[in-house]
């Protein structure tokens, strides 16, 4: 389920614009697709109900538009990924093809799950995301590069972006999947556990 950790300095590819504030994890992956003991195959169900709902109204979701197939950098608005802690949400986006996200803000648990999966989430302000969404809607073929190191998004529009510092360091050092580093500190873990009465039983 986790790719081997690797340094992530840049993500290059095409953008997928997805407008809307407060897009929750139930919309990203409906709960019925959580009835599984693996993450296999959930990429095809990303945004399933939103996609069907729009299709029923004669509209097309970005994930269904031919021009955005193969896109790998998702542009979003505010509080993206709010709601449940289900890692199935970023897993489904990743398995659909998304490798990085640029948006105004993210829900915290979703953001942490993206870090664990090696998906950098960059932050820009409201005016900037509007320009980026408009550019991606105007030209789906454009190539964009999200540069984690330089904190910049380059493409038809080039803008500075920000990252949360700790996760940014994790991407740049290839330690976004932290388990190996966590495992290396067993002595310190034992010591802290022994000092906590409710863990050690020594009140």
């Amino acid at each position: 389920m986790q790719a081997p950790a690797a340094v992530i300095e840049t993500v290059t590819g095409r953008a997928v614009p997805l407008r809307g504030n407060d897009i929750d994890t139930d919309r990203i992956i409906p709960a019925r697709y959580l009835r599984t003991v693996t993450f296999d195959g959930i990429g095809e169900h990303a945004f399933e109900d939103d996609r069907r709902g729009l299709a029923a109204k004669g509209q097309v979701h970005s994930f269904d538009k031919p021009e955005y197939q193969g896109g790998n950098i998702l542009f979003v608005n505010k509080n993206f990924g709010c709601g449940s802690s289900r890692e199935h949400a970023p897993q489904s986006l990743m398995r659909w093809g998304i490798e990085a996200i640029v948006g105004e803000s993210y829900a915290e648990i979703f953001f942490g799950n993206c870090v664990s999966l090696g998906i950098p989430c960059a932050v820009v302000d409201e005016g900037t995301i509007e320009k980026l969404l408009a550019a991606a809607e105007a030209d789906a073929t454009a190539t964009w590069t999200l540069d984690v190191k330089a904190q910049e998004l380059r493409g038809p529009v080039t803008v500075p972006v920000t990252f949360v510092d700790g996760p940014r360091q994790q991407f740049l050092t290839g330690k976004w999947n932290p388990m190996s580093e966590l495992l290396s500190n067993m002595d310190a873990i034992e010591k802290v556990a022994d000092g906590l009465p409710y863990v050690s039983g020594k009140w």
Binding site: G166, P167, K175, E181, L182, L196
Partner: peptide, 13 residues
């Protein structure tokens, strides 16, 4: 807190 990680974040029990 168990310690600081190389990213500057905390390892927390």
């Amino acid at each position: 807190v168990v310690g600081r990680l190389s990213s500057g974040q905390y390892q927390v029990l």
